[in-house]
Amino acid sequence: MTLTLWLTFLIAAVLISLSPGAGAVNTMSNGVRFGVKRSLPAILGLQLGYGAQIVLVGAGLGALVASSATLLTVIKWIGVAYLIWLGIQKWREPVLAVDENEEPDISPRRQFWDAALVNVTNPKATVFLIALFPQFLVAEAPHGPQLVTMGTTLILVDCLVMLGYALLASQLLRFMTTPRRQRQMNRLFGGLFVTAAVALASFKRA
Rank of each mutant, 00 (worst) to 15 (best):
A97V: 13
T152W: 07
A12L: 12
L86S: 02
L172H: 09
T27A: 13
K76T: 14
Y50L: 15
L15S: 10
R109H: 10
D114H: 12
G151W: 00
V161H: 11
Y165R: 07
V32L: 15
M150F: 03
F203P: 07
G62I: 05
I78W: 05
A66T: 14
L163V: 15
L137E: 00
Y82F: 11
N186D: 07
G62V: 01
D158K: 06
L188E: 04
T153V: 05
A69K: 10
V55H: 02
G21L: 04
K37P: 00
W113F: 15
L46R: 09
P179M: 06
L18H: 04
P41Q: 09
V127I: 14
A97K: 11
A166H: 10
G35K: 05
F193H: 14
S17K: 02
L10C: 11
S68W: 09
L10Q: 03
N119C: 13
K37Q: 15
C159K: 03
M1N: 10
E103R: 14
V36W: 00
V65T: 11
L64N: 10
A125V: 15
S17G: 06
V32S: 13
V198G: 08
F133C: 04
A81W: 01
L96V: 13
P20D: 12
L96N: 08
W6L: 12
L96R: 11
G51K: 00
P145I: 01
N186G: 03
S107Y: 06
Q47G: 06
L172E: 00
W77N: 07
D99C: 12
H143E: 14
I84R: 05
Q111K: 11
A131M: 04
W6H: 08
A141T: 05
L40Q: 07
S170E: 13
R180Q: 14
A81V: 05
